[in-house]
Every structure is written in structure tokens, then in C-alpha cells.
């Protein structure tokens, strides 16, 4: 039963990630590779505040959201001038920067979480407290699953309300034709800042739940393959509507679980999983470029 709850928690975390990424990829039309970086920012900020200040889940994750939103300027400001492949390269640079910080903000003669050894480098941060809610400690997988599902639902509602509002329409207008949108008086620069701040803040919540559930984080959370996995989720499921990213999350999380039933040696299981992701993406791009349940085709 715990395995089932574990799956639910992972689905919730990656559903939050996919919904947030859908905001920028599907609705702004900006393909970003920096999203895993912001997921890691959420994880690290939550872990450091929970470990050092012994703050509860809500204040620690609120701080994670605030910092990730603030750091989102690193991608949203370049988005004013760059688009297409150039923007992808800028987002890759931001991802490399965050990954580099997570990996290299380390000093062997200082305690983890101090200014000189903030991330503890490749050793990562361990013994991160489990989530708690108003003094109620959530230790077992079932309660964490309920908690994570509740947060994912809140993120879903927030995302849905925003996307079906005039603000969501403004994102589509900007994605369709930035210049024409500006020609009717829309401040697309401000909208880009808002969209990235909301998306990065939302993915930081996913990162905080991950850190609180797993209890250990290291720089691989911000690695490029994580960003690609996140992108695969939204591209496979489809972007530009609400259900596409959720479908993609479900499929990409189901693949490794199904592979567990096949008798594949552990040494090559991870590679086979990556191979399958790649294959699926190629097949999708060829036969259904808008994704399994998507509306908008990413160029």
C-alpha cells in the first residue's frame, strides 16, 4: 500500500511541475530548460529553512516560492528580447548556473547550510524534516500523499482559474503574435515576468514537497536531464490546455513503474527508461506534434 501512496506523491509533485511548465511552454510559447533549476531552488530553500530555522512546511515553502519567483527574473528578463532557439540557450545557461551553485557552494571546513557551505555540494542535504501542518507532523506515506494531493489540487485550481481568465487569454495572445499584442496596448514584458514568477513559484512548491518527502536532496535535482524529463512530460502530454501536462505526467511516471515488472537488469534499467522517453518523444513529434492531449504545437 505504501508503494501506491509513493506513486501518488510522485504524481502530485510532477503534476505541479508539469502544470507550472505548461504556463510558460504551452501558454507563453517559451521553451525553457531551466525549470529543474527552480525545482531545486524550491527544494534547497525549503530544506535550509526547515533544517536551520526549524520552520514548518508552510512558512518554509512560502519562502521557497518567494525566492524562486524572485530568481525567475533570470529567465523572464532575457525573454523580453530573446525567443525561439536563443531563448532556449539562455534558459540552458540559467539551468547551468543554478546547477553550478548547488554543486559548488561547498566548503569542507564549514557546516552544511552556512553561508560558506550553503548546499554541501555533491554530498547534498540530508535529514530534511517531513512536512508538518500547524504542528501536525506528517510521517507516514498515506498522510503525505493526502497532503501532497491537496496541494496539487490547489495548484491545479490556481492554474485553471488563471488560464481561463483574461490573463490566460493574454498569455495566448502574446504567444500567437507578440507584436500584434503590443500593438493593441498589451504590456507583454510585464506578462512574461508574471508568468515566469508564477511558474517558478509553483514549481518551487513541488520542490519543497519533494525535499520534505524524500528527506535528502543533492545537485542532481537541478541537472539538465531533470529539465528534459519535465519538458518531456509536457510535450508528450501536450501543452496549451489543462489536461495535456497531467496526461504526460501520468505516462512518464507510469513507464518506469511498468518496467519494474519486466525482468530488466538494474544496471541498464535507467538507460532503457531514457531510451523509451527519447523514442516516445520522437514518435510523438512525428505523428502527433501537439502531444497526446494538447492543443498547441510547440515550434
Amino acid at each position: 500500500m505504501n508503494y501506491f501512496f509513493h506513486l501518488i506523491i510522485y504524481f502530485d509533485i510532477y503534476a505541479i511541475v508539469a502544470m507550472s511548465l505548461n504556463l510558460v511552454v504551452g501558454y507563453c510559447g517559451l521553451l525553457t530548460l531551466a525549470h529543474a533549476g527552480y525545482f531545486a531552488v524550491g527544494s534547497y530553500v525549503y530544506a535550509l529553512i526547515a533544517l536551520k530555522l526549524h520552520a514548518g512546511f508552510l512558512p518554509a515553502s512560502a519562502m521557497a516560492v518567494a525566492i524562486a519567483s524572485l530568481l525567475s527574473f533570470a529567465v523572464s528578463l532575457p525573454a523580453w528580447r530573446f525567443k525561439g532557439d536563443f531563448f532556449v540557450m539562455v534558459s540552458l545557461a540559467v539551468q547551468a548556473l543554478i546547477f553550478g551553485l548547488c554543486q559548488n557552494w561547498v566548503s569542507s571546513d564549514a557546516e552544511p547550510g552556512t553561508l560558506r557551505n550553503l548546499t554541501n555540494g555533491t554530498f547534498g542535504l540530508s535529514e530534511i524534516p517531513k512536512p508538518d501542518l500547524f504542528g501536525w507532523q506528517l510521517n507516514d506515506p498515506s498522510s503525505i500523499a493526502i497532503f501532497a494531493t491537496a496541494i496539487a489540487l490547489i495548484c491545479g485550481v490556481v492554474s485553471g482559474v488563471l488560464l481561463f481568465s483574461p490573463w490566460g487569454r493574454l498569455l495566448q495572445v502574446m504567444r500567437d503574435d507578440d507584436l500584434a499584442a503590443r500593438g493593441v496596448g498589451k504590456n507583454t514584458r510585464l506578462v512574461k515576468l508574471q508568468a515566469f514568477a508564477i511558474a517558478c513559484g509553483m514549481v518551487a512548491i513541488g520542490g519543497a514537497i519533494y525535499a520534505a518527502y524524500v528527506g535528502f536532496i543533492d545537485p542532481t535535482l537541478a541537472a539538465l536531464d531533470q529539465s528534459i524529463l519535465m519538458l518531456c512530460m509536457v510535450l508528450l502530454g501536450g501543452v496549451g490546455n489543462f489536461r495535456g501536462p497531467l496526461v504526460g505526467t501520468f505516462v512518464l511516471l507510469a513507464i518506469p513503474e511498468l518496467l519494474k515488472f519486466a525482468t530488466i537488469p538494474d544496471g541498464i534499467a535507467a538507460n532503457i527508461r531514457l531510451l523509451l522517453y527519447g523514442l516516445l518523444l520522437v514518435v510523438m513529434v512525428h505523428f502527433r506534434p501537439q502531444g497526446l492531449a494538447g492543443k498547441y504545437q510547440v515550434d
Partner: peptide
């Protein structure tokens, strides 16, 4: 340069200035 993914109605509605709903 209309917005191709929007309906005609939304194309015109979206252009309206000072929409409160454009603030998230």
C-alpha cells in the same frame, strides 16, 4: 496578424484596454 488560436470573439475581446482580469 490576428491571434490564430483565439476565436473571432476573443480576438476582439482580448484587445479591450484596462481589463481587470489581466492582472493575475
Amino acid at each position: 496578424r490576428l491571434f490564430p488560436s483565439l476565436s473571432l470573439l476573443d480576438n476582439i475581446t482580448a484587445a479591450s484596454p484596462q481589463q481587470k482580469g489581466e492582472n493575475p
